[in-house]
């Protein structure tokens, strides 16, 4: 039991910091570069991603474990996962709208964007590839989403400060954002020594 728990902690740290979805796996680059100009929207996007990735890794793990695997339909995983995720995002949006209008106001605008976020499908596929069981899969999902949130909020913080800086003309906009991402990726590269 103890070693199982230790294993979960290692999966958590690996997914959140060492193999950060954005800075080392390059999943979800579009929202990372697009929605990171204000901390407030970065937090909203991050929370929505945590919500969706956790639910989708749970459901995809269940489907894979109890439907695809026993029936020998593993080759259908890409098709099944993408449809489940697209449907799930729609469903989550409807449920949140109905039961918690406050939460919907906070997350609502970010939910449709998540279908286009490849980190959701990426995490579901990684769970299968690494042969994680149900609990490990959920821990990996939560941790990956947390890693996404950490990097997008950090990026937003830096970009809010950067507005006041004197940046060379050719580097304005996209290039300087990418250079910031380079430096962040280097910092996160240092976490490799943790495990």
């Amino acid at each position: 039991m103890n070693s199982y728990f230790a294993n979960l902690v290692i999966i958590f740290i690996t997914a959140a910091l060492i193999n950060n979805v954005i800075l080392s796996q390059f999943l979800g680059i579009c929202p990372f570069l697009g929605i990171s100009n204000k901390i407030k929207s970065a937090v909203g996007m991050g929370l929505a991603v945590i919500f969706v990735i956790t639910t989708s890794s749970l459901i995809c793990s269940l489907i894979y474990r109890y439907i695809l695997d026993p029936m020998d339909l593993k080759y259908l995983q890409t098709i099944v996962f993408i449809i489940v995720i697209a449907a799930l995002v729609q469903f989550v949006e409807m449920v949140v709208k109905k039961i918690s209008p406050a939460l919907y106001n906070a997350l609502g605008v970010y939910l449709p964007l998540i279908t286009t976020n490849c980190s959701v499908l990426g995490v579901a596929l990684l769970n299968v590839e690494k042969e994680y069981d149900l609990v490990e899969g959920i821990v990996n999902g939560v941790a990956s989403a947390l890693g996404f949130t950490i990097s997008i909020i950090l990026m937003a913080g830096i970009r809010e400060k950067m507005v006041h800086n004197d940046i060379p003309k050719a580097l304005k906009g996209f290039p300087i954002t990418l250079i910031t991402a380079t430096l962040m990726a280097m910092a996160f590269y240092g976490f490799k020594g943790l495990v």
């Binding site: 800075l23 050719a170 304005k172 906009g173 996209f174 290039p175 990418l178 250079i179 990726a185 280097m186």
Partner: peptide
């Protein structure tokens, strides 16, 4: 390594801005 990917793309888009080449980023 991963940081290099961001750096190469940063340099590429900076070059496109400098030379005023057509690119969605500018």
């Amino acid at each position: 390594q991963p940081p290099g990917a961001f750096l190469v793309l940063a340099m590429l888009t900076a070059l496109q801005n400098k030379l005023k080449l057509p690119s969605a980023t500018n």
